[in-house]
Design a protein around this nucleic acid. Sequence first.
DNA 1: GAGAAGTCTTGACACTCGTCAAGCGCCCTC
DNA 2: GAGGGCGCTTGACGAGTGTCAAGACTTCTC
Lengths: 206, 206
Amino acid sequence: MSTSATTPRTTREAKVDARRDELAESALVTLGERGYARTSLREIAQNSPYSHGVVHYYFDNKVELITYCVRYYKAQCATRYDELVATSTTADELLGRFADKLVETLTDEPQMHRLWYDLRTQAMFEESLREAVLEIDHSLELMIWRVVSRFAELAGARPALDRGTAYALLDGVFEKALLEHLTGTGAALESLRERALTLMPSLISS
Amino acid sequence: MSTSATTPRTTREAKVDARRDELAESALVTLGERGYARTSLREIAQNSPYSHGVVHYYFDNKVELITYCVRYYKAQCATRYDELVATSTTADELLGRFADKLVETLTDEPQMHRLWYDLRTQAMFEESLREAVLEIDHSLELMIWRVVSRFAELAGARPALDRGTAYALLDGVFEKALLEHLTGTGAALESLRERALTLMPSLISS
DNA sequence: GAGAAGTCTTGACACTCGTCAAGCGCCCTC
DNA sequence: GAGGGCGCTTGACGAGTGTCAAGACTTCTC
């Protein structure tokens, strides 16, 4: 009874969620290429197996789609450094692997990162984006804080700064590296690595 | 001869430049309110004493107008801290006045700052914006560096980081404060002040 | 004061956008 | 195997965009 009633409903809902995720992935590709403002729903659909009308079948409007994308994107990246935090056994190892990972994600996913900075900036203008953006920004801050506090722990020290400041500093360094990387400065990758290596120790004390 | 030939030409050119500046100022107001993507030429004209066609009389296209605005904006802000650098006589005075000035500009001109972050992010997508944006970003880096190196000098120390890193760190702190300020967190101003006060000393050593 | 140059307005163009209604075809169900 | 709902496509709509040509108004020149 309950199975025959709930199972088809849940599978249908699961199918809908799968389509939404599929569209979100197509949307993220397009958004990463063109940016938030220049991306149209038709362009998103063109990068998907479907036509432009399908977007309004799965999402009420554009903002809802973008919001869904932001949250979908968060699931991919807000745990990026967790494995490294969990398995590093010395402060030096954590530091080196963190710096390497920073460079790796800058190399592999520059479009996703510029999209993130784009969305965060648009949230300063468009209130409809704020809730989702602030939510993911907060989760990124927590992610960075897990790295910093574990680094301090392994070094037998304690963080010298609060959580927000630590995030602001590392985010500033990463954003600058991204800008340099995308606008041609060849040394952006190595520069990011070195800056991370010198900055992290100054975030902890005694 | 030469005067009767050059004087009217130069005054005409000066008049044209004045109009371009006038339009740039109207454009900056609109851009600060709506952001780069959502600002149309008609909207810019509506915030000016002229009609929408006049834009194409003084600028070839939209990108040229925006580029002109960016450079015009730079002249206003890239020397923001210079007076303070020139007249402070102790490291503590410089530090305090710098932190106050950061808070002041965040309070008085949040729209100009979010516009700047918007344009810099758009430059990651649109190549036509890059030259002007990178130029002003570089001048901002030099401005920050003047503060940091003078601060080190007054403290009888030397900067502990390179120019680019120092800019990245302070920029990250300021951008976070701007986001918090615009999205409602009430403590953004005091938080920025405190972070600046604690960060600056860690940028210099021995 | 007539003519020319410069300045600005108006109206239109081709285009793109988000949105939505109408309808087609598929698959599941009885 | 007929009926019906679900998934998707197609085509259209009104609004808004950058751009530009044509002309009116102003200002300067001889």
